[in-house]
């Protein structure tokens, strides 16, 4: 597991380099909420020689991520889910809600500040 921590502006360059080296399969885009910043992780893989790499970057509240749909078409569903679960805005394309489509009042449930179970009442 090779770890690379980069900044937000180098993201598209790094991914294009990796595609040229043969890492052409996107496994997952996920994020972890450490309370003062968010860490976004991209897992990519080389199908020929079965190697994997993670690319990590840090984001604060209110920053925007560039979209990578032009490089990997698989990033479509992953970016939609990331933006509605964590409240990250993505620039470059129009992002619609995926899993919480009908509940506009529900914002970013996977953050640590979302008090879950607050809706539970039974008489």
């Amino acid at each position: 597991m090779v770890k690379l921590k980069i900044s937000k502006n180098e993201l598209i360059e790094k991914l294009n380099e990796a595609v040229k080296e043969g890492y052409n399969y996107l496994v997952k885009i996920t994020a972890v909420d450490y309370i003062d910043h968010l860490e976004v992780i991209y897992f990519i893989r080389n199908i020929e020689n079965k190697k994997e790499e993670n690319i990590r970057l840090d984001i604060k509240d209110g920053e925007r991520l560039p979209t990578i749909v032009n490089i990997f078409k698989a990033a479509d569903f992953y970016e939609r889910e990331l933006s509605e679960m964590f409240g990250i805005e993505i620039e470059g394309r129009k992002v619609e809600r995926l899993l919480l489509e009908k509940w506009d009042g529900l914002e970013a449930p996977l953050r640590k500040k979302f008090e879950w179970g607050a809706d539970y009442k039974r008489d």
Binding site: L100, W103, L106, P109, W116, G117, A118, D119, Y120, R122
Partner: peptide, 9 residues
Amino acid sequence: WWESYNIIQ
């Protein structure tokens, strides 16, 4: 799933 935010009890 009774504690979840999206479920009817």
